[in-house]
Nucleic acid binder design. Sequence first.
DNA 1: AATGCGATTCTCT
DNA 2: GAGAATCGCATTT
Length: 205
Amino acid sequence: MKKLTREFYKRDTLLVAKELLGKYLVVDKENCTLKGKIVEVEAYMGTKDKAAHSYSGKITERTKVMYKEGGYAYVYLIYGMYYCMNVVTLEENLPEAILIRAIEPVSELETMCKNRYGKSFQELNSYEKKNITNGPGKLCKAMDITKWLNGEDLCGDRFYILQDENEDKIEVISSKRIGIDYAEEAKDFLWRFYIKDNKFVSKLD
DNA sequence: AATGCGATTCTCT
DNA sequence: GAGAATCGCATTT
């Protein structure tokens, strides 16, 4: 498995979004390495996208990470209790990013269960087992992604994305983004992408 | 200083 | 399907 390079991230956001599907998100901790296959993403297309935090070029303490060059992590708190993780794309001052909406657990499933529910996998009921990492807030809880990883370089050693050289061909479904009803015309853009028939996708159309 | 609210999730019904 | 939880940020007084 090979780590994605800076060049990978500094390309067209919609292209990078689709190519992130099937890659492996890794959080390297002192005692363990959490790993999950990316199965669902959404693209946020910068200053002209009414759903994006960077709409109209607004720069604040929260959004400034979006203005970095590609390959940095933008992690923010939502509803006072959940974190969402994004991958920044393009060159500096082009504030586009990709929200990771769901992963499929690959390594450290037990740790993820502990992080999410404080219980082992075996102790989970069937509803909990289905809901470990199938949402942007859930996967951050499971992988212990918090504000301490905001601005982290994904080309570094603690938080990165791997590519499987023998990756199977992936069937990509495009659909409308979730939870952005306020975004007027932008709410209908097909900027959500997920792997067809994958059981860990957060919501079916 | 005060207000309003969100790229969500969970717990009911 | 509705309502609550909970807090940092952006905006208004």
